[in-house]
Simulated assay, not measured.
Amino acid sequence: MAARDWHDWHRAYAQPASFLSRRLAVVQDRIREFLDRAAPGPLRVVSLCAGQGRDLLETLGTHPRRTDVTARLVELDPRNAAVAADTARTAGLDGVEVVVGDAALVDRYADLVPADLVLVCGVFGNITDDDVRRTVGYCAQLCATGGTVVWTRHRDEPDLVPRICDWFAAEGFTLSWISDKAAGFGVGVHRFAGAPRPLDRGARMFTFVADPPPRART
């Protein structure tokens, strides 16, 4: 099977009724809630495998807290990164940096963590269960005390979402919100109640599987 074209994958967002568009709306609502409730002052955001940055950038572009946010979006596909960079520039989001590179490398975030918001969207459906568990552990290094992680995962069988919630709990996170299984997708929000752990410099959090699922259910 040929490797997925991640730029072409984004075309589904042009269809309002598509799985990706419906899930995106939910993720954006969760980001908006985070921004609405965040304490006054600077906010740091990191986004892993950010794609075209639609989740954060489309939300931040019209939000009153837009100038408070310093964000780094890391995306391997240069075409998607170019779209994200153009969106940020057009919206005047001067605090947003788009980095072309491997989002699985911890060092990509070294000077911006612990962050107030960590986005792990479109990742957990493309890596092994062991790597999902490993990445959840690294979220305790990336996230500030009281910070928020927003993540996604499909609900196809075997449904890993309940175990992901358990893994977050084991790492010191509390569940703030989880989408209903009937929605057909999983969006989770966890708040970190612990103290950030030292960053494991030089480490890799995950590796995308060679043959991703046939449906756009990441």
Results as ranks from 00 to 15, higher is better:
39 A>C: 12
19 F>D: 12
50 A>H: 05
48 L>A: 12
47 S>M: 03
59 T>M: 08
23 R>W: 03
44 R>Q: 13
64 P>Q: 10
29 D>L: 12
20 L>G: 07
33 E>G: 15
19 F>M: 15
69 V>E: 03
42 P>K: 11
18 S>C: 13
60 L>A: 06
32 R>A: 15
21 S>H: 12
32 R>C: 14
24 L>F: 05
43 L>T: 02
73 L>Q: 00
46 V>N: 10
26 V>Y: 04
20 L>Y: 01
34 F>M: 14
41 G>V: 08
26 V>Q: 14
48 L>G: 05
44 R>A: 12
29 D>F: 01
64 P>E: 03
25 A>S: 14
65 R>E: 09
55 D>L: 00
70 T>S: 15
73 L>M: 13
51 G>A: 08
26 V>K: 14
55 D>T: 02
42 P>N: 14
76 L>S: 10
64 P>G: 11
41 G>L: 13
67 T>C: 06
48 L>C: 08
57 L>M: 08
73 L>G: 08
62 T>I: 08
55 D>R: 05
23 R>E: 13
72 R>W: 02
71 A>S: 09
21 S>N: 12
60 L>N: 07
61 G>A: 15
46 V>P: 03
27 V>H: 11
35 L>I: 06
49 C>S: 15
35 L>T: 06
78 P>D: 08
32 R>F: 09
58 E>A: 10
39 A>H: 12
44 R>E: 05
39 A>Y: 01
35 L>Y: 02
40 P>W: 06
39 A>Q: 15
41 G>K: 07
56 L>T: 04
69 V>T: 01
61 G>P: 01
50 A>R: 11
22 R>W: 01
31 I>G: 08
45 V>R: 05
63 H>G: 07
64 P>D: 06
18 S>N: 10
34 F>R: 09
20 L>W: 01
70 T>M: 11
74 V>F: 01
64 P>T: 11
54 R>S: 12
44 R>C: 05
42 P>D: 14
34 F>A: 11
60 L>D: 04
32 R>T: 10
78 P>F: 13
58 E>K: 03
54 R>I: 01
53 G>D: 03
18 S>P: 08
78 P>I: 08
59 T>G: 07
19 F>P: 03
26 V>H: 11
46 V>S: 01
49 C>H: 09
76 L>M: 14
31 I>N: 09
75 E>D: 13
40 P>R: 09
58 E>P: 05
68 D>S: 13
67 T>R: 14
40 P>L: 10
50 A>M: 02
59 T>Q: 10
70 T>D: 13
62 T>P: 00
71 A>Q: 04
44 R>W: 00
55 D>M: 09
17 A>D: 15
51 G>T: 12
75 E>R: 07
43 L>Q: 03
54 R>L: 14
71 A>N: 06
49 C>Y: 05
60 L>F: 10
47 S>P: 04
